[in-house]
């Protein structure tokens, strides 16, 4: 039997959050953490609340804190997550909890929108695609794959302190995805919008984002590139 301790909070009935323990029969299988949540919801308590969709690590719905580390429940096997026979599951840290494991991601999405995450190029488009060499396209690898799960930004102390002013690793990764795109012409406008003490420079290179990214992306590196661009622009 697996011992699971779940963070519970229902705003209609609970004054404060609490941890609830469940003994889950996994029949010895190395399930994913999401499978365990599905078992609890189906067999123990139908009111347990969490988000999930693709169950294969590409939709970014089920970012959670499992035994102290952020990750996607659907691609985290018990063999990776469980310590000392116990699994503690909490919502992503630093964002308001709506209910149980569901957090309010408005601030996270607002930072994403702030970087204008869409291609900008006012020159008239050709009748076919805009050409881009494989080398130019390669600059987007490691950037475009972000799934907006928020594992990175909610593991970042700078984002915990300034979620309204520091864009955070996820937003900055996307800011750089467009700065790095040979088809985008808004480099100067993008940099001007980021050029303040908080948007980028609150990153202190702690690299929690890199440690938790379930897609193996490196926001710190992208932030480093933006810093360099901002510094070059200043001189």
């Amino acid at each position: 039997m697996l011992q699971v301790s779940l963070y519970r909070y229902n705003p209609e009935t609970d004054d404060a959050p609490f941890m609830q323990d469940f003994s889950v029969d996994t029949s010895g299988r190395d399930l994913m953490v999401l499978d365990v949540l599905e078992l609890i919801k189906a067999e123990h308590d139908g009111s347990v609340t969490y988000r999930r969709s693709c169950r294969e690590g590409v939709c970014g719905s089920d970012g959670l804190n499992m035994n102290g580390k952020n990750g996607l429940a659907c691609i985290t096997p018990l063999s990776d997550a469980v310590k000392g026979g116990k699994l503690v599951i909490r919502p992503l840290p630093g964002l308001p909890v709506i209910r149980d494991l569901v957090v309010d991601m408005s601030l996270f999405y607002a930072q994403y929108e702030k970087v204008q995450p869409y291609l900008q190029n006012p020159t008239p488009a050709p009748a076919i695609e805009r050409l881009q060499s494989p080398e130019e396209r390669a600059h987007l690898d490691g950037l475009y794959e972000c799934i907006l799960c928020a594992c990175c930004s909610t593991s970042c102390p700078s984002f915990w302190w300034n979620p309204d002013r520091f864009v955070g690793p996820a937003g900055l990764l996307q800011a750089y995805r467009f700065l790095a795109d040979s088809r985008d012409t808004a480099t100067e406008e993008r940099l001007a919008k980021l050029d303040d003490p908080f948007s980028v420079f609150r990153c202190h290179g702690i690299q929690n984002c890199v440690n938790v990214c379930p897609k193996g992306l490196n926001p710190t590196k992208a932030i480093g590139h933006i810093r360099t661009m901002l510094l070059n622009r200043a001189t």
Binding site: L119, R130, L131, Q132, P134
Partner: peptide, 20 residues
């Protein structure tokens, strides 16, 4: 419809000629 998506920014993989 595909070229519109590319113009919107879809990061297609590329050929040596720079096409999709």
């Amino acid at each position: 419809a595909i070229f519109e998506l590319e113009h919107m920014g879809l990061p297609f993989s590329r050929t040596e000629e720079g096409r999709i």
